[in-house]
Design a protein around this nucleic acid. Structure first.
Lengths: 204, 204
DNA sequence: AAATTTACTAAACAGTGTTCATTAAATCCA
DNA sequence: TGGATTTAATGAACACTGTTTAGTAAATTT
């Protein structure tokens, strides 16, 4: 009746093959250049076969998104380990921006893709890695608030303020808007703005 | 030799017709739903005709972008008129966010579309409306800095910090990331974060 | 009236995501 | 082992996309 273990393993293997090819194509050709047909060609199967392993293209993008969070954590782990909460938040911001700048397509997938998500419950589950990240930032903000004795500041709003700023910077950089403000200074603009944000938020 | 005035007027009229149809389709079907073929069908011409009036689809999107800035200015003008620079900046932020939230597709076109722009000089010209907006914000920041006697703060960085924050908030809202943080509270989250940003930046 | 310019389009090219009937192979059961 | 059944994979189609080009019909000029 049910699939044998070998069968299931083989099924999982082809699924992995598809994701691997998708990953390669994403890196080489960008988000726009990633197509079902190119994936199929890369793994030498027909396009229709892809649909035996994934319901649609969005499902593939979704799984890529989860892989992307794995890549991002490599940037973030050292920042997470920082002792001083204020310094930690600054490091998180820098690492986040660095990841965003060096992995445009991944970043887009993870933070700018609109999900059809009719069922937000499920989505909250599926974006749990992003959520965990935000929760960690929020906890760090709480620590920083306590440490500095800041009164009347909601750590969730603070975390969102910080996230929005860095997310905004990365997106402005990706759409070349920072180049328009000051040519060839994108990296410096991001660093300086991040520092200014830290200074104003934590009143150093 | 040259086109008669009537001819030129007619040419401009069809161009306007194309842009009008594009605008309608953008509003009805969103950015993804906007296609050359749909525009052609709407104005009852063949798709090829579009290419006699615009070099490519990007050129149409570009002109739509400029129309979008016209729409946006309706939101911003009252904020620009505000006397107190600090209050003015806050109002600009709120109006900007309001425009972004109520005009997702326009916003995307104006602030998230990547331009092929090989020649950044030209682009800076073509994005002059956005640039003018940013310059006005920068000037307001300078005024606020002087008024509050804030030391060692670069108004350009301050303006960028503020812009990034609001831009980030709008984009996070558009990609449903704020819904994940706190369901059905997107508007409040934006308002509160904007207030927190104002408070921390201007130390009120 | 003939020649030329202008305005427009049908058809094609190369691509996209997705579906479905069909085939070939593997597995199961008698 | 032989026949029935399940499974895996696909070719071909559908309905789209942006864009190009050769060709036509109408308006204008000579």
């Amino acid at each position: 009746m049910g699939l044998s273990e070998r069968k299931e393993r083989e099924k999982a293997e082809l699924k992995e093959l598809i994701l691997d090819a998708a990953k390669r194509i994403l890196l080489k050709n960008g988000k726009e250049g990633l197509s079902i047909r190119k994936i199929a060609h890369a793994i030498e199967y027909s396009p229709a076969t892809i649909y035996l392993y994934f319901p649609d293209k969005d499902a593939i993008l979704h799984e890529l998104m989860e892989i992307g969070f794995g890549l991002m954590s490599k940037y973030l782990v050292p920042a997470f380990a920082e002792q001083d909460p204020v310094q930690r938040i600054h490091s998180i911001g820098k690492a986040y921006a660095k990841f965003g700048m060096e992995n445009k397509d991944w970043y887009d997938l993870m933070f700018n893709s609109e999900k059809p998500m009719k069922h937000i419950e499920k989505c909250a589950e599926e974006w749990d890695q992003g959520m965990a990240m935000f929760n960690f930032l929020t906890a760090s903000c709480k620590q920083a608030i306590d440490l500095l004795g800041l009164k009347g500041i909601d750590e969730r709003i603070l975390a969102l303020h910080f996230w929005s700023t860095v997310h905004g910077l990365v997106n402005l950089a990706h759409s070349d808007r920072l180049e328009i403000i000051e040519r060839n200074q994108t990296r410096q603009l991001i660093d300086r703005t991040l520092e200014a944000a830290m200074a104003s938020i934590f009143r150093t």
